[in-house]
């Protein structure tokens, strides 16, 4: 293979090179081309559940995070049709949970919100469910606000695969599917979750929150306040915050 030209596929008319074994989403992001996504995290095996990264290849819609790139594929991503589909998916997520951004301490660092901004979602369009989802404040250092869960399973994957603790799981089926805490009492305080865990740093929305840190970075100066997610996701955004200071949450990528 040495010296051989890298294989390519075309995305919206632009050539995207890829390494054999890469998915369309991985190759696109590596080439600096943003594809909206929520349940995908570069450090975890693709999950293919949120469907936000849906693209059209040769007339078929597929999740680009689980589809291997193939030489010569014609991939449609930012077409009006696919963007409309993505907007609808985001709107579904908003109405199925309780996403009150003005009172959420993750606002400005939230991927769901940032993706919605990127797609130009001006309203939820559908009638909100307003589900009742009590919070879990039992843990001394961590607050769980289930109202914002989008079922991406990143915390489940991180806790099982990296932390080896299996703190989180999904329960129920269909519209009743929800995140649970893996303890007999159902309370986070009765698990081995610690603030250093990987599971603390992967929530794309505002479910898993460190206590007493909520507003260390003021609203308006946060990651996606400063840079659109399409720049952050492909590493084009330089400073994380306007102040230039590193995140007070240490290695956390999604924190503040």
């Amino acid at each position: 293979m040495a010296g051989a030209e890298k294989p390519m596929f075309a995305m919206d008319g632009n050539d995207v090179p890829f390494e054999p074994g890469q998915t369309i989403l991985q190759a696109a992001l590596a080439a600096g081309r943003y594809v909206p996504h929520l349940c995908f995290h570069p450090e975890f095996k693709p999950h293919g559940s949120c469907k936000l990264c849906t693209v059209k290849i040769n007339g078929r819609t597929v999740a680009s995070c689980t589809t291997l790139a193939k030489q010569g594929d014609e991939v449609e991503s930012e077409t009006p049709e696919i963007q409309d589909l993505r907007r609808n998916l985001v709107q579904f997520l908003f109405v199925e949970g309780n996403h009150f951004c003005p009172s959420c301490e993750k606002s400005g660092s939230c991927m769901l919100q940032a993706v919605a901004y990127d797609l130009g979602v001006m309203a939820e369009h559908f009638s909100p469910f307003f589900p009742s989802r009590p919070i879990d404040a039992s843990h001394p250092d961590v607050l769980l606000d289930f109202n914002r869960c989008i079922l991406c399973e990143l915390c489940i994957r991180a806790s099982a695969e990296v932390d080896g603790k299996n703190v989180f799981a999904l329960s129920g089926r269909g519209a009743k599917k929800h995140l649970i805490v893996n303890a007999e009492s159902g309370r986070l305080a009765d698990t081995r979750l610690a603030v250093e865990d990987k599971a603390m740093d992967v929530c794309p929305v505002g479910v898993i929150l460190r206590k007493r840190r909520g507003f260390q970075v003021p609203i308006g100066e946060r990651k996606y306040d400063q840079h659109p997610i399409r720049e952050v996701a492909v590493g084009k955004a330089t400073a994380r915050h306007a102040s230039g200071k590193p995140s007070p949450q240490g290695p956390s990528k999604e924190g503040a």
């Binding site: 309780n98 009150f100 951004c101 003005p102 001006m122 939820e124 909100p128 307003f130 589900p131 009742s132």
Partner: peptide
């Protein structure tokens, strides 16, 4: 035109909905 969070999705007052 619906202007602002409350008009768009219920906003803060809707936090009593549960």
């Amino acid at each position: 035109v619906a202007m602002g969070a409350c008009a768009v999705n219920g906003g803060l007052p809707a936090q009593r909905n549960h």
